[in-house]
Write a protein that binds this DNA or RNA. Structure first.
Lengths: 224, 224
DNA sequence: GACTGATTCAACCGATTGATTAACACTTGA
DNA sequence: TCAAGTGTTAATCAATCGGTTGAATCAGTC
């Protein structure tokens, strides 16, 4: 049996199991007994440590966000507004952002099932956010949107703020959709291991985004 | 009260209520009693008419798909491969597709709550498809993907099939993400009624897609 | 060894789940 | 008129839900 010398991190195991199970079967589809069994713990501990099921769910979400979302913001320089070198800085900043975002977004399939679960949880929460988790969600996503949007004005100074917002949405959306709907995309493609070359994928998103945004550099051929 | 002369379409009312409730609270979060009450029917009828809860869910999905997804494929001419007029035909076909898709996608907020629920159901099923509904989902989505993909080769004859697939994904993805994540997008924008001008939105997606794809016509300015 | 607070446990709670049943109302066709 | 069939209902089923309880076990501290 090996009664497993009472880990003092039962709490952590519960959170980890919760992330896994909530991602697999959703909030309502998962029972606390199921989670507890996955963590080799007693179901009553959910109430003891997290004040109930919803508290555990919120804690699982918070863990996912702080572990997957936040760590990205480290490598970001900030481009200026209409200053002389701003255009080139914005161009490089945007490209770096796309690369970092995509790398972070796609670097989980083969590695850690917990990473994959974290992505599923995040995606589900973004699509239909519970009222309790909306603030948490917004808090962790806002910086990304802000940084992306900060890159755009220098590249398209002729557009107003709403048009730039739409640009940002299209850029972000193509990537998030690719990640969130990977299941159906693989079905459509008929290849269960579709994104075989990550670098090619990244380069596509960068090119498509820069062209879509209207950056001349990304649009080489003047005539067909 | 109006004991409502025994409709012989209790079945239909159950499906309608099921769409509404399943969209609002998910499959596991919705009880058949809740659905039955919404349809002013007895919960036992779920088993009688649909062989249980899952049968009702599947029937609701089928209704949503045939009502929301299928009707689009009517107005589509088919562009050819490398024939003389194929490029122009593909260009017009793609633009018509985007316009029709977006119109269909966004024309439900103010009109019918059932339409909105249908979109939510579809989005959720695309993100995490149940194994039982995957064939249904694929069957109804495949024609869209096929048509979109058929437009691309004539516009970028220099690209291989995988690159074109990525193009199609980016085009489709930006729109689906906009629709599916409308909630979080409105939060980020701070405007609960964000897409105020549908035509402007459509035009943006068309322009962004054509530029991203690499169509010179959509990329007017040669120099900033 | 005695005491304390934190942690974990089996057992149980009322409530609700999806499903089933037997009876009932009604139409239809023989 | 009777029998069969369809649609509907209230009542009930076992199973499971999230949560609570009181006792047991743990690590420290005195």
């Amino acid at each position: 049996m090996a009664p497993s010398p009472p880990h003092q991190d039962t709490r952590s195991r519960l959170i980890e199991s919760a992330i896994l199970h909530f991602a697999a079967k959703g909030y309502d589809g998962t029972g606390i007994r199921e989670i507890a069994k996955g963590a080799q713990a007693n179901s009553a501990l959910v109430a003891y440590h997290f004040c109930g099921k919803e508290g555990l769910y919120l804690e699982a979400l918070r863990t996912v966000f702080t572990r997957k979302v936040s760590p990205l913001t480290g490598l970001n320089p900030i481009p200026a507004a209409g200053t002389p070198g701003s255009r080139q800085a914005a161009l490089e900043g945007l490209e770096a952002y796309l690369r970092a975002f995509l790398t972070k977004l796609m670097s989980c399939d083969s590695s850690d099932p917990l990473d994959e679960a974290a992505m599923v949880l995040m995606a589900r929460e973004m699509q239909s956010p519970r009222k309790v988790s909306a603030p948490l969600l917004l808090e962790h996503i806002q910086p990304y949107a802000t940084y992306l949007m900060a890159c755009l004005p220098a590249l398209r100074p002729d557009l107003d703020e709403e048009a730039l917002f739409l640009m940002g949405n299209s850029i972000q959306g193509q990537m998030l959709h690719f990640r969130n709907s990977l299941g159906i995309i693989r079905l459509l493609r008929g290849n269960p291991a579709f994104p075989e070359d990550l670098e090619k994928l990244i380069q596509h998103f960068i090119d498509f985004s820069l062209r879509g945004l209207g950056v001349p550099e990304a649009f080489p051929q003047p005539r067909n």
